[in-house]
Protein backbone atom coordinates (compact mmCIF):
# COMPACT_ATOMS: atom_id res chain seq x y z
CA UNK A 1 0.00 0.00 0.00
CA UNK A 2 2.65 2.54 0.96
CA UNK A 3 6.31 2.58 0.00
CA UNK A 4 7.30 4.05 3.32
CA UNK A 5 5.84 1.18 5.36
CA UNK A 6 8.45 -1.53 5.84
CA UNK A 7 7.13 -4.61 4.14
CA UNK A 8 7.72 -7.23 6.77
CA UNK A 9 6.06 -10.59 6.61
CA UNK A 10 2.37 -10.38 7.46
CA UNK A 11 1.20 -13.10 9.76
CA UNK A 12 -1.67 -15.23 8.57
CA UNK A 13 -4.60 -16.19 10.71
CA UNK A 14 -3.29 -19.76 11.03
CA UNK A 15 0.07 -18.49 12.27
CA UNK A 16 -1.62 -16.19 14.76
CA UNK A 17 -3.72 -19.06 16.08
CA UNK A 18 -0.72 -21.39 16.43
CA UNK A 19 0.32 -19.80 19.68
CA UNK A 20 -2.07 -18.48 22.30
CA UNK A 21 -0.88 -16.06 24.92
CA UNK A 22 -3.74 -14.61 27.00
CA UNK A 23 -3.85 -10.83 27.31
CA UNK A 24 -7.33 -10.14 28.59
CA UNK A 25 -9.28 -12.58 30.67
CA UNK A 26 -12.90 -12.28 31.77
CA UNK A 27 -14.43 -14.44 34.53
CA UNK A 28 -18.16 -14.43 35.35
CA UNK A 29 -18.61 -10.83 34.24
CA UNK A 30 -21.90 -9.13 35.09
CA UNK A 31 -22.59 -5.53 34.08
CA UNK A 32 -25.31 -3.42 35.71
CA UNK A 33 -26.82 -0.08 34.79
CA UNK A 34 -28.38 0.93 38.10
CA UNK A 35 -30.65 -2.06 38.86
CA UNK A 36 -30.73 -3.38 35.31
CA UNK A 37 -28.38 -6.31 34.74
CA UNK A 38 -27.40 -5.86 31.07
CA UNK A 39 -24.78 -8.61 30.81
CA UNK A 40 -24.98 -11.86 32.77
CA UNK A 41 -22.08 -14.23 33.19
CA UNK A 42 -19.43 -13.85 30.50
CA UNK A 43 -16.26 -15.97 30.56
CA UNK A 44 -13.75 -15.33 27.80
CA UNK A 45 -10.04 -15.07 27.06
CA UNK A 46 -8.45 -12.88 24.41
CA UNK A 47 -5.12 -13.84 22.86
CA UNK A 48 -2.14 -11.60 22.21
CA UNK A 49 -1.69 -10.38 18.63
CA UNK A 50 -4.90 -12.02 17.54
CA UNK A 51 -8.01 -10.47 16.09
CA UNK A 52 -11.06 -11.46 18.11
CA UNK A 53 -14.52 -10.57 16.83
CA UNK A 54 -17.55 -10.20 19.06
CA UNK A 55 -20.77 -10.76 17.13
CA UNK A 56 -24.44 -11.07 17.98
CA UNK A 57 -27.80 -9.34 17.60
CA UNK A 58 -28.56 -5.86 19.00
CA UNK A 59 -28.81 -5.69 22.78
CA UNK A 60 -26.62 -8.76 23.30
CA UNK A 61 -24.12 -6.79 25.37
CA UNK A 62 -21.10 -7.08 23.11
CA UNK A 63 -20.37 -3.33 23.11
CA UNK A 64 -20.99 -3.21 26.85
CA UNK A 65 -18.38 -5.92 27.41
CA UNK A 66 -15.94 -4.13 25.09
CA UNK A 67 -16.29 -0.91 27.07
CA UNK A 68 -15.40 -2.73 30.28
CA UNK A 69 -11.90 -3.44 28.98
CA UNK A 70 -10.82 0.21 28.91
CA UNK A 71 -13.07 1.32 31.75
CA UNK A 72 -15.20 3.49 29.42
CA UNK A 73 -18.27 2.17 31.23
CA UNK A 74 -17.07 4.20 34.22
CA UNK A 75 -18.36 7.27 32.36
CA UNK A 76 -21.95 6.03 32.41
CA UNK A 77 -23.61 7.12 35.68
CA UNK A 78 -24.92 4.09 37.52
CA UNK A 79 -22.81 1.55 35.63
CA UNK A 80 -21.32 -1.22 37.79
CA UNK A 81 -19.20 -4.28 37.01
CA UNK A 82 -19.10 -7.57 38.89
CA UNK A 83 -16.75 -10.46 38.26
CA UNK A 84 -13.08 -10.26 37.34
CA UNK A 85 -11.40 -8.73 34.31
CA UNK A 86 -7.67 -9.16 34.18
CA UNK A 87 -5.05 -7.70 31.84
CA UNK A 88 -1.84 -9.77 31.96
CA UNK A 89 -3.11 -11.09 35.26
CA UNK A 90 -3.71 -7.62 36.75
CA UNK A 91 -7.23 -6.89 37.95
CA UNK A 92 -8.54 -4.01 35.80
CA UNK A 93 -11.05 -3.00 38.48
CA UNK A 94 -8.76 -3.15 41.51
CA UNK A 95 -9.14 0.01 43.62
CA UNK A 96 -5.57 1.18 42.98
CA UNK A 97 -5.95 0.94 39.21
CA UNK A 98 -6.08 4.28 37.40
CA UNK A 99 -8.49 4.18 34.42
CA UNK A 100 -6.21 6.69 32.66
CA UNK A 101 -3.36 4.14 32.73
CA UNK A 102 -5.71 1.40 31.51
CA UNK A 103 -6.83 3.52 28.55
CA UNK A 104 -3.23 4.21 27.57
CA UNK A 105 -2.56 0.45 27.20
CA UNK A 106 -5.96 -0.41 25.82
CA UNK A 107 -6.98 2.03 23.10
CA UNK A 108 -10.34 2.40 21.45
CA UNK A 109 -11.78 3.20 18.04
CA UNK A 110 -15.43 4.26 18.03
CA UNK A 111 -18.37 3.46 15.80
CA UNK A 112 -18.60 6.95 14.34
CA UNK A 113 -15.27 8.55 13.41
CA UNK A 114 -14.69 11.23 16.05
CA UNK A 115 -11.71 13.35 15.00
CA UNK A 116 -11.10 16.42 17.15
CA UNK A 117 -11.89 19.76 15.48
CA UNK A 118 -8.16 20.38 15.07
CA UNK A 119 -5.52 19.80 12.42
CA UNK A 120 -4.56 16.29 11.32
CA UNK A 121 -1.19 16.71 13.04
CA UNK A 122 -2.71 17.87 16.33
CA UNK A 123 -5.16 14.96 16.30
CA UNK A 124 -2.32 12.44 16.19
CA UNK A 125 -0.09 14.40 18.58
CA UNK A 126 -2.89 14.77 21.15
CA UNK A 127 -2.41 11.37 22.80
CA UNK A 128 1.38 11.64 23.20
CA UNK A 129 0.99 15.21 24.44
CA UNK A 130 -1.61 14.53 27.14
CA UNK A 131 0.27 11.45 28.28
CA UNK A 132 3.49 13.50 28.50
CA UNK A 133 5.28 10.66 26.71
CA UNK A 134 9.04 11.08 26.53
CA UNK A 135 9.47 11.68 22.84
CA UNK A 136 12.55 12.76 20.98
CA UNK A 137 10.64 13.88 17.96
CA UNK A 138 6.90 14.31 17.90
CA UNK A 139 6.97 14.69 14.10
CA UNK A 140 8.33 11.15 13.77
CA UNK A 141 5.66 9.75 16.05
CA UNK A 142 2.95 11.42 13.97
CA UNK A 143 4.45 10.12 10.73
CA UNK A 144 4.85 6.56 12.02
CA UNK A 145 1.32 6.45 13.37
CA UNK A 146 -0.11 7.72 10.08
CA UNK A 147 2.01 5.21 8.16
CA UNK A 148 0.83 2.34 10.28
CA UNK A 149 -2.77 3.44 9.72
CA UNK A 150 -2.13 3.57 5.94
CA UNK A 151 -3.03 7.23 5.81
CA UNK A 152 0.37 8.92 5.49
CA UNK A 153 0.52 9.02 1.68
CA UNK A 154 -2.90 10.63 1.47
CA UNK A 155 -2.32 13.37 4.04
CA UNK A 156 1.44 13.99 4.25
CA UNK A 157 1.14 17.32 2.39
CA UNK A 158 -1.77 18.63 4.44
CA UNK A 159 -0.94 17.83 8.03
CA UNK A 160 -2.09 21.26 9.17
CA UNK A 161 -5.48 20.93 7.48
CA UNK A 162 -8.56 20.34 9.63
CA UNK A 163 -9.20 16.66 10.28
CA UNK A 164 -12.89 17.33 9.68
CA UNK A 165 -12.15 17.96 5.99
CA UNK A 166 -11.19 14.28 5.49
CA UNK A 167 -13.62 11.68 4.15
CA UNK A 168 -15.38 9.33 6.57
CA UNK A 169 -13.01 6.44 5.83
CA UNK A 170 -9.97 8.68 6.18
CA UNK A 171 -11.34 10.05 9.44
CA UNK A 172 -11.68 6.54 10.82
CA UNK A 173 -8.10 5.67 9.81
CA UNK A 174 -7.05 8.94 11.45
CA UNK A 175 -8.74 7.77 14.65
CA UNK A 176 -6.86 4.47 14.39
CA UNK A 177 -3.59 6.39 13.87
CA UNK A 178 -4.43 8.61 16.85
CA UNK A 179 -4.91 5.49 18.93
CA UNK A 180 -1.62 3.92 17.70
CA UNK A 181 0.34 7.09 18.55
CA UNK A 182 -0.17 6.36 22.25
CA UNK A 183 1.49 2.95 21.69
CA UNK A 184 -1.19 0.76 23.24
CA UNK A 185 -1.01 -3.02 23.33
CA UNK A 186 -4.68 -3.66 22.72
CA UNK A 187 -6.99 -1.84 20.29
CA UNK A 188 -10.72 -2.10 20.90
CA UNK A 189 -12.89 -1.39 17.88
CA UNK A 190 -16.60 -0.76 18.37
CA UNK A 191 -18.21 -1.37 14.97
CA UNK A 192 -15.51 0.70 13.27
CA UNK A 193 -16.99 0.32 9.79
CA UNK A 194 -20.66 0.85 10.66
CA UNK A 195 -20.76 4.32 9.07
CA UNK A 196 -18.41 3.61 6.14
CA UNK A 197 -18.99 2.59 2.52
CA UNK A 198 -17.71 -0.82 1.26
CA UNK A 199 -14.47 0.58 -0.20
CA UNK A 200 -13.53 2.38 3.00
CA UNK A 201 -14.53 -0.74 4.95
CA UNK A 202 -12.20 -2.89 2.85
CA UNK A 203 -9.33 -0.52 3.58
CA UNK A 204 -9.93 -0.72 7.32
CA UNK A 205 -10.15 -4.52 7.13
CA UNK A 206 -6.80 -4.70 5.27
CA UNK A 207 -5.36 -2.38 7.86
CA UNK A 208 -6.50 -4.65 10.68
CA UNK A 209 -4.56 -7.56 9.17
CA UNK A 210 -1.41 -5.43 9.17
CA UNK A 211 -2.01 -4.17 12.70
CA UNK A 212 -2.40 -7.75 13.96
CA UNK A 213 1.37 -8.09 13.56
CA UNK A 214 1.87 -5.79 16.51
CA UNK A 215 -1.42 -5.34 18.31
CA UNK A 216 -4.14 -7.33 19.98
CA UNK A 217 -7.42 -6.36 18.33
CA UNK A 218 -10.92 -6.90 19.65
CA UNK A 219 -13.64 -5.84 17.25
CA UNK A 220 -17.38 -5.63 17.81
CA UNK A 221 -19.30 -5.98 14.57
CA UNK A 222 -22.86 -6.42 13.36
CA UNK A 223 -21.56 -7.72 10.09
CA UNK A 224 -21.03 -11.49 10.18
CA UNK A 225 -19.15 -11.53 6.88
CA UNK A 226 -16.75 -8.99 8.34
CA UNK A 227 -16.15 -11.16 11.38
CA UNK A 228 -15.53 -14.16 9.12
CA UNK A 229 -13.14 -12.18 6.90
CA UNK A 230 -10.99 -10.43 9.50
CA UNK A 231 -10.99 -12.35 12.74
CA UNK A 232 -9.00 -15.26 14.08
CA UNK A 233 -11.38 -16.04 16.89
CA UNK A 234 -15.05 -15.18 17.31
CA UNK A 235 -17.23 -14.77 20.37
CA UNK A 236 -20.96 -15.13 19.77
CA UNK A 237 -23.26 -13.21 22.11
CA UNK A 238 -27.02 -13.29 22.15
CA UNK A 239 -29.88 -11.47 23.85
CA UNK A 240 -32.18 -13.53 26.02
CA UNK A 241 -35.26 -12.76 28.07
CA UNK A 242 -35.46 -13.82 31.72
CA UNK A 243 -38.56 -14.91 33.70
CA UNK A 244 -39.38 -11.27 34.53
CA UNK A 245 -39.39 -10.36 30.83
CA UNK A 246 -36.10 -8.41 31.01
CA UNK A 247 -33.74 -8.63 28.02
CA UNK A 248 -30.12 -9.29 28.83
CA UNK A 249 -26.96 -10.30 26.99
CA UNK A 250 -24.76 -13.34 27.42
CA UNK A 251 -21.93 -15.14 25.70
CA UNK A 252 -22.97 -18.36 23.97
CA UNK A 253 -19.68 -19.64 22.63
CA UNK A 254 -16.20 -18.55 21.70
CA UNK A 255 -13.88 -20.42 19.37
CA UNK A 256 -11.69 -20.18 16.28
CA UNK A 257 -13.57 -18.18 13.68
CA UNK A 258 -13.47 -20.98 11.17
CA UNK A 259 -15.06 -23.37 13.61
CA UNK A 260 -17.79 -20.90 14.63
CA UNK A 261 -18.76 -20.32 11.01
CA UNK A 262 -18.54 -23.92 9.78
CA UNK A 263 -19.23 -26.14 12.73
CA UNK A 264 -20.55 -24.24 15.77
CA UNK A 265 -21.12 -26.18 18.96
CA UNK A 266 -24.36 -24.44 19.89
CA UNK A 267 -27.60 -24.52 17.94
CA UNK A 268 -28.24 -20.81 18.63
CA UNK A 269 -24.93 -19.90 17.01
CA UNK A 270 -25.78 -21.94 13.97
CA UNK A 271 -29.22 -20.32 13.72
CA UNK A 272 -27.67 -16.85 13.88
CA UNK A 273 -24.85 -17.33 11.39
CA UNK A 274 -27.14 -19.09 8.93
CA UNK A 275 -29.47 -16.09 9.11
CA UNK A 276 -32.39 -17.80 10.79
CA UNK A 277 -32.66 -14.99 13.35
CA UNK A 278 -31.03 -11.73 14.29
Amino acid sequence: MTETTSRVHLTTSAERLASFEPVLDVRSLHVFYDDFEAVRGVDATFGRRQITAMIGPSGCGKSTVLRCFNRMNDLVPGARVEGTLTYHGMDLYAPEVDPIEVRRRIGMVFQKPNPFPKSIYDNIAYGPRVNKMKLNELDDVVQQALEKAALWDEVKDQLDKSALALSGGQQQRLCIARCIAVQPEVILMDEPCASLDPLATAKIEDLMQELANDYTIIIVTHNMQQAARVSDRTAFFTAEVDEAGVRYGRLIEMDDTQKIFTNPADQRTEDYISGRFG
Binding site: N70, M72, L75, I100, E101, R103, R104, G107, M108, F110, K112, N114, P115, F116, P117, Y126, G127, V130, N131, C175, R178, C179, V182
Partner: peptide, 13 residues
Protein backbone atom coordinates in the same frame (compact mmCIF):
# COMPACT_ATOMS: atom_id res chain seq x y z
CA UNK B 1 -20.04 13.70 23.64
CA UNK B 2 -17.91 11.77 21.12
CA UNK B 3 -15.16 14.41 21.48
CA UNK B 4 -15.00 13.85 25.23
CA UNK B 5 -14.98 10.08 24.83
CA UNK B 6 -12.32 10.25 22.10
CA UNK B 7 -10.10 12.28 24.38
CA UNK B 8 -10.64 10.10 27.47
CA UNK B 9 -10.06 6.90 25.47
CA UNK B 10 -6.59 8.21 24.57
CA UNK B 11 -5.66 8.36 28.24
CA UNK B 12 -6.38 12.05 28.76
CA UNK B 13 -7.57 13.06 32.22
Amino acid sequence: QSIRHGSLALGAT
